[in-house]
Amino acid sequence: MSAGQSRRVLPGFPLALGYTLVYLALIVLIPLGAVFLKSATLSWEQFWTVISAPRVLASYRVSFGVSLLAAAINAVFGLIFAWVLVRYSFPGKRIVDALVDLPFALPTAVAGIALTAIYAGNGWLGQWLEPLGLKVAFTPLGILVALTFIGLPFVVRTVQPVLEDLDTELEEAAASLGADRWQTFQRVLLPVLLPALLTGFALAFARAVGEYGSVIFIAGNVPMVSEITPLLIITKLEQYDYVGATAIAVVMLVVSFVLLFLINGLQLWANRSRART
């Protein structure tokens, strides 16, 4: 801190920053540190054995694979959704727009049992889908439905403001140069929207990977088939295998931090390209 800053005009900086740091340390940093410390009681080989057990590997495949697919679905439909909300007027639009945030606001357990009721063999949609050979509930497909639900707002809410800020001049210029709508979208709009779209995709993916509540009801939780990694952590905890649970948690945390880092970078990129347009 240089001498010039030592006397600040606005008051309260030491108090505010001090409080922030202490609270952050107590609630977030120390508990997270505990996870890493606990995993350090394992030797590298023990650690590796735990995190690469066949059942654990299968859970990664389910968690990351389905999350990726759900995020991709959300990227496509979220973009269409945001486009429709910004560009078109239709009756009931305000309600539709407000309800986009439902997955943020609705407790995950509630979402989980509701989706299960819909897609179970005797459910509203399940009873029509199962005769067609499409089992949704209690299969990986059910996980996909749940993760698509909880990831939906991320893409819409990151793309929507960018679309709203977009000047019509850009498209007018493209049109005056002879581009048709599809060309304009592909070559002019999509590049502008891409940073926000990727940010939304990454956010939806990160959220889906860690999701627990909405998934466990509909997943069926069959080991090696439809068991997600967070559930495996809980299973280990219930068997008092704290070290095993912690080792898997460390893997997930590392992935989360990498994702967070990536998302930060994407957001920086998004903000910068937004400032440019």
């Binding site: 001498a3 010039g4 006397r7 005009v9």
Partner: peptide, 17 residues
């Protein structure tokens, strides 16, 4: 050129080194 900084130092919004 430093004119605004000078003004803010006179006001006490900034302190001089």
């Amino acid at each position: 050129c430093g004119k605004t900084t000078l003004l803010r130092i006179i006001a006490g919004l900034e302190s001089a080194d």
